[in-house]
Amino acid sequence: MNFWWLVPEDYFQWRSKVFNYRERDEFLSEEDLDLANLDWPELIATWNAWLLRMQITNEEDEDDYSHGVFLSEKQKRRLWGDDWEKKQ
């Protein structure tokens, strides 16, 4: 159970000042953002290794589209439900 709502707002301001604690909205993971620390050869090597590793999902996403205006049947169902054809 989360009881943070019971804690006075003052506490968070005190915590920030005393511990130099800065709350920050998190989006991508630390691993993702670590790309910024790679030099060019490291980036290429990491990129290529990732692309090779991800080939394992080729069967699963064989019909899918990552961008553009076309969608696979599976993507249409995910977006608009099983009766997507009727909705169009």
């Binding site: 991508l28 993971s29 993702d32 953002l33 790309l35 910024a36 790679l38 980036l43 990491t46 990129w47 990732w50 692309l51 991800m54 080939q55 999902t57 996403d61 990552s66 961008h67 553009g68």
Partner: peptide, 20 residues
Amino acid sequence: LSSGQAVVMHRLALSSKDGD
């Protein structure tokens, strides 16, 4: 270069297998 691989070029994340 655009979309997923452009995100890599901007040093943010590896998330797409396709080129755009």
